[in-house]
Structures are given as structure tokens and as C-alpha cells.
Amino acid sequence: MATQFGEKIRKLRVMQNLLLRQVATKLNVDTSIISKMERGERPIKKEQVSILADILKADKAELLTLWLADQVMDVIKDDPLADEALKSVAKNLKKSK
């Protein structure tokens, strides 16, 4: 299943006419990892998100937000109480600010 983060990375890479192998080399990983990451089949480490942002000349905050949203989605996607849990988290985040 494609992820928001993976779709964004693919879009940025294609817009800049970069090949998978070019991005993989700069990130110091195998080409297949970038391909799987774009398709949402393999997670990427948080530290690698900032590096990808630099490689793709993208907004780090936007990519980190998409990455985090995908992490949350992966944890709660099949739970019937996911919506209520997210509402509770949002409420607590507002309180803590």
C-alpha cells in the first residue's frame, strides 16, 4: 500500500528527473530500498528523512510530518477505535501547548 511519504518522495524524485539509483547512492542504500519505500513496502528511518529532504530539495518539516503520519497510520489502521484514539491524542496535544 502506497504511503503519503512514499508518494511524495516519488513525486519529488520524478519532478527532478532523478533515477532511483541516484537517490539511493546519495542516501547510501540499495536502489531496491528506495523503490520499496516509495511503494510503502519498507519503512525508512527518521534520520534518513532529513537526508532525503536535502537530496530532493524538499521541506524537511513537510516530509517529517508525512513520515510521522504514516507511522501512526501503520500502528492504528486496523483498529476500530483508531478514530477515537486520534481525537484523544489531538486533544492532549492541544492541552500540552
Rank of each mutant, 00 (worst) to 15 (best):
A69N: 12
L86F: 05
D79Y: 08
R21D: 10
D54G: 02
I76K: 06
L19Q: 11
T65W: 02
V75F: 03
Q4G: 09
Q16M: 06
L20I: 14
I55Y: 04
V29F: 02
E47Y: 03
M15V: 14
N17M: 10
E38V: 12
K97I: 08
R21M: 05
L66Y: 01
M73S: 13
Q16E: 12
Q22R: 09
T25V: 12
K11Q: 15
L27G: 05
R42F: 01
E7T: 08
K60M: 10
D79F: 09
G6P: 04
T25F: 05
S88P: 08
I34C: 06
A61K: 11
K87D: 12
A2R: 14
D59N: 09
R10Q: 13
E84G: 12
E7F: 07
S35C: 13
K87V: 09
L66K: 01
S35H: 12
K91L: 15
V75S: 11
L52D: 04
V89A: 12
K11T: 11
V23C: 03
E7M: 13
A90V: 07
D70Q: 06
A82R: 00
Q48L: 09
S32D: 10
L27H: 03
V89H: 11
N17T: 05
L56C: 07
R42W: 00
D83M: 15
E38W: 01
D79V: 10
S96V: 15
I76C: 07
L86K: 04
I51F: 00
K87Y: 11
D79C: 11
K11W: 09
S35N: 14
E62H: 03
K36D: 14
I33M: 15
E62S: 05
R10D: 05
R13I: 05
W67D: 02
A58R: 01
D54F: 03
L27I: 05
K46H: 06
E84S: 13
N17S: 11
L18S: 10
I44K: 00
L52Q: 04
M37W: 03
R42D: 00
A82V: 03
S32P: 09
E41Q: 06
F5H: 01
L68T: 15
V89N: 09
D70I: 10
L56W: 04
R42Y: 04
K91Y: 15
K91G: 10
Q71H: 06
A58T: 01
T25R: 12
M1F: 03
M37T: 14
L86W: 00
K45P: 06
S35E: 09
N92I: 08
A90E: 06
I55H: 02
V49D: 01
A53I: 02
A69M: 13
R42S: 04
D79E: 15
K8T: 04
K87A: 14
Q48D: 12
V75A: 13
S96T: 13
L66G: 00
K91D: 15
E47F: 04
D54Q: 06
E47T: 06
E47W: 01
N28V: 13
K11Y: 10
T25H: 07
D30G: 14
L81K: 15
D83N: 15
